[in-house]
Structure formats: C-alpha cells, structure tokens
Write a protein that binds this DNA or RNA. Structure first.
Lengths: 243, 243
DNA sequence: TCAAAAGTGTTCCTTCTACACCCATGT
DNA sequence: ACATGGGTGTAGAAGGAACACTTTTGA
C-alpha cells in the first residue's frame, strides 16, 4: 500500500484545488467521485495541489486530464473555500488509525503529515464533460473512481458535499451562458436529450413544444439526419452545435 | 518611513485577500483605492493576508473594518486570481530602488522580502457600502486612501485593475439578487437615486417611468415623507427598504 | 402662470404558455 | 389502422417599452 508523500517545496502550501466533474447519462446528472485506497471507505472529489510554477487554472486542468483522460475540458472556477477549520486532520488521523501499515515515525513521514494536516484553502472548479468520452482513471491514492448520481453521492471527506452543492448552484446560474448544457452532450444529440439535461440540472420539467422552440431560436443548432431507434414512432432529428 | 514587516508564521503563505470596495456618490460609482507611502506613486486595492486561525471571509471583513471603519458590510467573494506569474517582485523591487531608506541587508528584512516576493494567490471580494457612512482610514503602509471614480482609476500595482473589472462584472451579474443596489444607498433615498445607481452600474439608461414601476413592484420599499430641495418642481418621495 | 421634475395611466408590441393539430414510425 | 412520440402553428395571457397626461413645487 502506498504511503502519502508530497514534495513539499514544489507546491504552494495550504492551497488545493478540487474539481466537481459533471457528466450526463441516461436522464441523470453524474459527478465523478474517487474512493481512496485506505481502509475505511473514504470518498473524495478529484483534487490536488498547485505547483509553484503553475497557474491555478492549469493545475485544475492537469488534475482533470489525469482523472478523465480528456484534454480541453470546459472548466470553470466557481468558489474558494477557506474556513479556518478546513483541514484534513480528523480524516488523516482516522486513516492512520485504520491503516497502521502506512503510519511510521520517520521524520520524513512526520513532515508530510504536518504539511497535509495544516488548514487548507481550496479553489473549487466545475467541469462539464461528455461522459462517453471520459475514461475515469485512478490516481495512486484511489481504489476506484466512479460516476455517482448527483442526488445520491456517497458521504465524502471534509466539506466536499458542500463543494458539490455550491458547484451545482453555480452551474445553474450560468447554464444559459456559453451554451453549457451542450458541453454535457455528445456531438450528436436529440432535442429530448437537451431537454433532459436542462430538466435534470434545474430539477424541474418544461413543456416539450415550448422548450424545443426556445432552444431552436438560439440559432446555434444544425439539424442532421434522423435517429432511427426501431421504436414505433416518429424518429427524432439529431442536432449538432454549429461552431 | 516604515519598513515592511510581516510575522510570517501567523499568516498563510502565498495567499492574500483583495477588496474592491464600491460606493456611490453623486451619480458615479466609486472604488476605494490606497496610495502607498513609498515614493513612486504606487496605488493598490485594500488588501491583506489571512491569519492561520482566520476564515478568509473574516479576513476580508477585518480588512474592510480597518479601512472603512464600518462593521457589518455587505461582502461577496467573487473570484480567485492565481496565475503563476502573479507576484510582487517587480513592484517591490521598484520600491526598493526608489526608497533606499527602507532597504536593508539584515537577515530579517531579507526574509520578509523573500516572503513577500513569492508568487501569491489572491481571493477577491467586493463590498458595497453607503459611502456617507465610511471613514476611509489609511493603513500603516498608505499615504492616503481615496474614492476614485470606477471609470477613472489610477494605474494600480499588479493585476488590481483586472480585479476591479472582474468585480464589476460580478456585481452586474447579481445586482438584482439580494437587492444589492440599495446597499450602496443611505437609509432614505429617492427613486432617482436608485435609478442612477442602476444606470451607473450597468452604464446605460432606463426610461424613468418604467423604471419606477419595476422597482415599486418589487414590494420592498416603504414610501416616506417628501424631499424638499427648494427646487421649483414637484418634490420626490423618500423611500426606505422595508426590513 | 410657467418651467421643471415627479408620479400615474394607457396603448402597443413582444414574449411566454398552453394546447390543438399534424407527421412519421414500426407493429 | 393505430399507438407512440416528434414537430409546427396559434390563441390568450403576461410582461415590457413608449409615451401622453396629471400633479407638485418655487419663482
């Protein structure tokens, strides 16, 4: 089992980045959550530290690339969490108790533990990705990394639950700007897909015909061929964002 | 002339807070900007560092209290600036050259200089205050602290200009939430005052009669006595926010 | 009585909402 | 043919913009 080691001098102390990675699949909004390798069922948002020579935006993009395998992800900083009591101490102490194998008294490990248990300020980013393009990848501290329904997240460490809520409300506030909903969809999609994304994010329902009109009046969609599913009803058109 | 000294261990390293303090006066939007004591015309937003045991929100509130004398200010975090090249080095080097009296080679000063010239991540807050209640107060590093028209700011250090722009756009985005415009006004105000605040912030004009209707339909104002100015025209009513 | 600014009401137009209607698809 | 779901058109309601009209104030 891996030990936790951080080359302290390479990173900005007491600063981290956490990412709320949203995806959309089959009528529900998903968030990517990692389960850590340590015994005790610790769940956490993908996150990391910021290197001394690295923009915080770049750090977030790096973390995303590492965890999803995708470059060029839509990424938006939404809030910075910096309460004085925001630290890893209780969580790392629990880990140390449950996982004696990684606990040692070597000066180096002590130093790492001290570095990690300080109070941390974290910059929150949310990402919107086409879930079909993502290949979730574990970091060396993860046992697994999985999509969870945004309404049924596992209990996570620290204030990660709160971070997700804040991300979701930021997403709602700017869904119409920059055509954010489409970033959750694959290149070709039906109008129903778009409507479901909206309905899921806002947790409400829209009148089908009016919704269609509203979206088409944005004049950003190109109508493609029809989608034949084999079902006994009119085939919907595929649409695509025009660049 | 004061030297710059920082008790390093008390603060989170490489993290700062900067405040864009908005006020409204006589038809224009103002921002509080400090001129630093050093020779060379250095202007800066009120800012400071975050103590180890202090929430970042609390740090921002403390800085505001110190600079405006007001407690209970409306304060909103809006963005965190963290590019890798964001540091005080060029600015402090200039100061050191222009102000040889504060430059020394003592180990302590060297340490402070090193601490200050590292790359810094800063959390931006904007504040909205009733300008008539504020008593701008210099910090020990300020020569003066003054209200500047938001459209005519002096050249400021680092990326402070950019921070103000971002604050203004965040303010625009949420002006209607939480009745923000009224936080810039004194307790009693006329409808024209409200309109001018809106027009100034959005840099546009509204039709008087429709604007009045829109605001009154919010049902958050109580009509008070009239304001007699001595002018040869109908006296406008004073209004007040109902709690 | 007049000019200036505040307050009210009305008309017109655009946008939103609900829903009726038609179209395509496979059984 | 018909059940199912997709696409279009339209009438009515609601909301916003433009502007005419009235009221108040001091000279």
């Amino acid at each position: 089992m891996n030990k936790i080691t951080i080359k302290q001098s390479d990173y900005i102390p007491q600063l981290s980045v956490d990412c709320v990675i949203f995806g959309y699949d089959e009528g529900s909004l998903k968030v990517l959550v990692a389960k850590m390798i340590f015994k005790g069922n610790f769940y956490a948002l993908p996150g990391g530290f910021v290197m001394q020579e690295e923009d915080i935006d770049t750090a977030a993009a790096r973390i995303l690339r590492e965890r999803t395998g995708i470059d060029q992800i839509y990424l938006q900083q939404f809030y910075t969490f910096g309460n004085a009591d925001r630290n890893n101490r209780s969580f790392l102490t629990k880990i140390a108790k449950l996982n004696p194998s990684i606990t040692s008294t070597s000066p180096k490990d002590k130093k790492t533990f001290d570095w990690l248990t300080k109070r941390f300020v974290t910059v929150g980013y949310y990402a919107l990705i086409d879930i079909s393009k993502a290949m979730p990848q574990k970091s060396e501290m993860d046992q697994s990394i999985t999509w969870y329904d945004a309404n049924a997240l596992p209990a996570m460490i620290m204030d990660h639950q709160h971070i997700v809520h804040k991300a979701l409300s930021a997403l709602r506030n700017s869904l119409d700007e920059n055509l954010l909903a489409f970033k959750l969809l694959p290149e070709k999609f039906t109008m129903k897909d778009v409507q479901q994304v909206y309905e899921t994010i806002y947790d409400t329902s829209f009148v089908r015909t009016n919704f269609q009109k509203k979206i088409l009046e944005l004049n950003v969609l190109e109508r493609l061929d029809k989608k034949f599913t084999g079902a006994a009803n009119k085939a919907p058109y595929y649409y695509r964002l025009i660049s």
